[in-house]
């Protein structure tokens, strides 16, 4: 295995520990392709999600981090839309004849 000499870490703060934990668990399930070229670790430090990328080149780091940030932005948007809101039960609308 080539040396994972290129490293980049990103720290993303959330509103609370619970959101950071949910984001970490959501991200951690994605398998890393080409694991001999790239290693990604997701950790939580209080309300922060820490993503660490270790790769054999800038190219693999660039592809991976842009993809991860895109996914984290989707998670953030979900929290922004739904977290803290009252639960709503959606029911199928009955058609009137």
């Amino acid at each position: 295995m080539s040396e994972l000499s290129h490293r980049l870490s990103i720290s993303i703060p959330f509103e609370n520990d619970k959101q950071a934990s949910m984001a970490r668990k959501t991200m951690a399930v994605d398998p890393v392709l080409k694991s001999n070229e790239l290693l990604i670790k997701f950790n939580q430090e209080e309300n922060k999600l820490i993503c660490q990328f270790m790769g054999t080149s800038d190219r693999v780091i660039r592809v991976a981090i842009s993809n991860v940030i895109d996914n984290v932005k989707t998670i953030i948007e979900c929290f922004d839309e739904f977290d803290g809101k009252d639960d709503v039960q959606f029911e199928e609308k009955q058609e009137t004849i």
């Binding site: 990103i10 509103e15 190219r59 660039r62």
Partner: peptide
């Protein structure tokens, strides 16, 4: 706060992409 975080994250994503 989360909306602004998403925008800041896009800025940092641009900076990282350009740098790399």
């Amino acid at each position: 706060a989360l909306g602004q975080l998403r925008a800041r994250l896009t800025t940092i994503q641009d900076k990282i992409n350009i740098f790399l």
